[in-house]
Design a binder for these strands. Sequence first.
RNA 1: GUGCCCGUAGCUCAAUGGCAGAGCGCCUGACUGUGGAUCUGGAGGUUGCGGGUUCGAGCCCCGUCGGGCACCCCA
Length: 426
Amino acid sequence: MSAIAPVKGTRDFYPNQKAFQRWMYDHIRAVSEKFGYQEYEGPFLERLELYAAKSGEELVQEQSFVFPDRGGEMIALRPELTPSLARMLATRSKSMIRPIRWWSFGPFWRYERPQKGRSREFFQWNIDLLGVDSPQADAEIVVVAAAFFKAIGLTAKDVRIKVNNRRLADQQLDKLGVPPERHQQVFRLIDRRSKLNAKEWNTYAEEIGLDQEQIVGLEDLLNNSVAWREFDELKDFFDAVEQMGASEYVEYDPIVIRGLDYYTGNVFEAYDAVGEERAILGGGRYDDLVADIGGEPLPGVGFAMGDVVTGIVLDKCGVRPDLRANPADVFIPTFDESSRGEALRLAAELRVAGLKVEWFPEIARLPKQFKYADQQGIPLAVILGPDEIELDQVAIKDLRTGTQTTIPRSKVIERVRELLEPRNEL
RNA sequence: GUGCCCGUAGCUCAAUGGCAGAGCGCCUGACUGUGGAUCUGGAGGUUGCGGGUUCGAGCCCCGUCGGGCACCCCA
């Protein structure tokens, strides 16, 4: 038990956990770049008012880490990235060539009660396509998400991306005679459908002023899995998803609404197939946000994916990789004082040749040294003890197979590279 | 912010209100130039923290910190 407790809702990243995060980051980068997106970063601190503009009330008032700076300005640890993105673009949008494809991965903070899949400090992948307002742009963003899932080993049987459209939902409620000012409440009702039983749900629906006819109509809507066919924005979207080969991951779901106020068109969320966990990612189209923050009108679509739920789903599906913390290529044991200098020279020589080399920093029993190398996951040991020095040789032991050969010292770099070759094909 | 459950060795967990333990891991040796297997021995604890009840508290009570679950919300 540590003397000073960690801050509630934060996590320590020990090397193997950091290796996992790095692995996720590498896939995020690879997929983002595969679609031509560029990496960017915003500040971790923003004025609170940036979020007051368009994020939900609850988000600003209850769930942000906020403090006054010395001048009395209210500062927030960023709870999301999209407003920062909008601000960055608002100041330069006139000079930017469109479309704009940007992605980012970094820390965010929310003052919430931590529980499974939800911490106060977490990492998020944000990716956005701006300057274009088309269902095909929405489709590309969703296909990026599907490509990422595929890359990290989550199949269409493991995860689903569920899509709906704000305007369609509004139209549907209009048809039921729900006045526009009630839509928000009804969206909340829809969101609760999976959490309440039929009777509770009915009671709740009555409480917000729906009559029986409207409730029945609403249920019909929520059970209608083909309503998208009558709605061009979704029809074109699903066509494009199909053309990009990601249909298996993507489906229409009238229950997806999203909490944020700034979404205007297609919205989506990804869940584990069983639907037990929180959303893995969520996003949608936000056509007014940049203008609201003071820039030129700039339509956009994007999503954010948290690292916590993604990790849980990987565990659940049994595809979390077993990662070691970036082991060296070569291990060099230390025999005695007389040979230590030569061993250090050899290590330096191999590093100059571009290899990752770790030596044992004290004279210790060899079993201990080899055990250490094995546990680190280092594939090769290059052995230069008194006997080898005498004969101008080195012994190379492949710790993966246990085979050891002795070669002239002058051949060591060449031989090590050969032995590492298959490893680098990964 | 509300309610409930939990907190014992590095990890996973035992211990009726009565001597704080096991497995795994770690260190050590069997094996003084070679890892994984097996066996030997060892270290490791103010039972999250603070108070209270009691002859006696890991266990009961109160508070606090941390974790989990359900609300709330979900960027």
